[in-house]
């Protein structure tokens, strides 16, 4: 029964870029010390380690199509690990375990129109899929992103969002809950943006990531637009402490989110009573 490799041992990695994006979020480009690529698929996560502080699950934000072997994280200063991480400079060493979990079903998405619905930090994991689709533009039909933030200052990757608007066949709509003088776009809940989206239910796969309160309203809007239940994917946030299906923290009913998720088809989640 013995196996000498510990599944809890992180690999050394280096922060090669660190940029503050908003008041609360910081962007990190990370490279594994052995120079290898992370080897993730869009929607997977890693465990970030800072010895002496601890470990936390963080979504990978870059697409595997990104050039070079570095990958990207975007982290909110929200807990003990992330607050120390925010203070680390370029060149600092961190530990990485993973990638873990099941990401977006890239192969099933191919050939379809994609509707991305992101609320708040949900754009961070979704960005890995969006850039994957942009980099493999021919493999997909039309692309639509509906992206809602609390305020204009909370909006992440604003330059990239502008760039996506220039990609042929990519429609981008953004909204904020609370506007300020700098904002001349939509104001209100993300569901409002569905009025601006052209959705062909026969061709559309919908992928949504956001806070739990958002899911119910987004699901309702998706179903109202005629999107098939079997073509809706959601990514769940849970406390994925160990990432390897042991510690118990991320369970939804009998399902370890770190193993079977974080991305699930809606048809699966509607049978898990603790999920939504």
């Amino acid at each position: 029964m013995e196996s000498s490799e510990s599944i809890y041992l992180p690999r050394p990695a280096e922060i090669v870029e660190a940029v503050k994006l908003t008041q609360r979020e910081k962007f990190f480009e990370v490279r594994l010390a052995d120079g290898t690529a992370l080897g993730h698929s869009p929607g997977q996560f890693v465990e970030v380690s800072i010895f002496g502080v601890g470990e936390a699950p963080i979504s990978v934000s870059s697409s595997p199509t990104k050039k070079g072997n570095a990958f990207e994280l975007c982290v909110r200063d929200a807990g003990s690990l992330t607050s120390v991480l925010h203070g680390l400079p370029k060149g600092a060493s961190i530990g990485i375990r993973g990638p873990f979990g099941r990401g977006f079903p890239v192969d099933e998405l191919k050939g379809h129109d994609l509707l991305f619905v992101a609320g708040g930090l949900g754009i961070v994991p979704l960005r890995s899929l969006i850039n994957y689709a942009v980099d493999n533009r021919d493999a997909f039909g039309s692309l639509t992103l509906l992206y809602g933030s609390r305020t204009p200052a909370d909006m992440l990757f604003t330059d990239e969002v502008e760039r996506w608007k220039t990609v042929p066949g990519f429609k981008v709509e953004t909204t904020v809950d609370l506007a300020d003088a700098s904002w001349d776009g939509h104001v209100g809940a993300i569901t409002k943006l569905f009025g601006y989206a052209e959705i062909d239910p026969a061709r559309t796969m919908a992928v949504t990531v956001g806070p739990p309160v958002m899911f119910r309203f987004v699901l309702k809007s998706l179903l109202a637009k005629g999107v098939y239940e079997s073509r809706i994917y959601l990514s769940l946030e849970r406390r994925m402490k160990c990432g390897v299906g042991k510690c118990g923290h991320c369970q939804v009913d009998d399902v370890y989110v770190c193993q079977k998720g974080p991305v699930f088809p809606y048809t699966r989640l509607r049978k898990l009573q603790e999920a939504l």
Binding site: A56, R76, A78, G79, L81, T82, L121, P211, P212, E237, R238, R239, C247, G248, H249, C250, Q251, V252, E274
Partner: peptide
Amino acid sequence: DSCQLQGFAAVAGGGNFR
């Protein structure tokens, strides 16, 4: 740890799933 403790399923952002 214990799934019976209040913070067992809590995440850093403030949500508590159980």
